[in-house]
Design a protein around this nucleic acid. Structure first.
Lengths: 157, 157
DNA sequence: ATCTTCATTGAATAATTATAAAAAACAACC
DNA sequence: GGTTGTTTTTTATAATTATTCAATGAAGAT
């Protein structure tokens, strides 16, 4: 039995059943003919970034932890870096081109920040309009955003 | 000392320091003149949905857990329920009105699902246009969405 | 004021999880 | 074959966390 196999089964099991303890997980593994001690499972759980969390009704269960522990600004800058193709300013507006299907996602992140430089956004599949209070502020925003776009994206300044 | 006060301090502390055990947290609380036993802290942690997770370098620490453990469809239905004010259909389009600042968020969720009924979305602060391939499909989508909107929201059918 | 109920807490302890140290498994080499 | 180094696992135990039960306190009702 390979470690990776076992971990794949663990992932499936914790998604399928509300498993509350390592002993319980051990039993479920046994039912699939995988033998492992609690100690091994403890290490798997740590490696796989699985955490125990109370679900809706007081019960705790293991779930796979995803990184939602970044702050909003980090998320913005990461997204700018990852999905923005170009940013152009026209007067008091910025027009952002994104990779397909990332327009609304990025706009939601921008909205979330409630920046004073942003009066409103309008987003589609791969384009976002950002309206600023005036052209000066729009330029500031443009400069800020541009500085976080990946160099190898096709950026028009 | 109110429970809510203590929990607010706990939240601040776990964000500020990499706290690995409840004893450690107890000590930090003590330093802020808040006395509580490990039992109490255990209960706080459960209530606040704080989890222990390994961070970048093997160390574990407590962090606040956010629900990323819902599937996309659950997220959609929850959002429809929580933020939608009205949904109207005009020919092959649906127009959704949301609570302020939720337009792009909800649109991002809808985009994520890549529904065949959705050719594209266009979202702003509190409004979303959803374009469907034809009026029939748009009506199906409308019916589906409507059924998940909270009854006490001001729904126009 | 006294009683009742419900929430909160601490002390003690049970339950659970993590880890140290040794053993086993495995691979790559001679 | 044997030897060496590395990874994974177990056993035994330490460390950590959750819970039971009793005590305390707060808010409302009579």
């Amino acid at each position: 039995m390979k470690k990776s196999e076992r971990q794949a089964v663990i992932e499936r099991l914790i998604m399928e059943y509300p498993i509350a303890t390592q002993e319980e997980l051990m039993a479920k593994l046994k039912a699939e003919d995988i033998t492992a001690t609690q100690a091994t499972i403890s290490r798997d759980i740590r490696e796989m970034q699985i955490v125990k969390t109370p679900d809706d009704h007081g019960q705790t269960r293991y779930v796979i932890f995803k990184e939602t522990n970044k702050n909003e600004q980090e998320r913005l800058f990461e997204s700018l870096h990852d999905v923005v193709i170009s940013i152009d300013r026209v007067e008091f507006m910025n027009i952002i081109h994104t990779l397909p299907s990332n327009g609304n996602l990025l706009a939601a992140i921008i909205d979330d920040l409630h920046l004073p430089e942003v009066s409103g956004t309008l987003a589609g599949h791969d384009t976002i309009f950002i309206i600023s209070p005036n052209a000066t502020v729009a330029k500031q925003l443009h400069d800020l955003f541009i500085s976080h776009v990946a160099d190898d994206n096709d950026v028009a300044d």
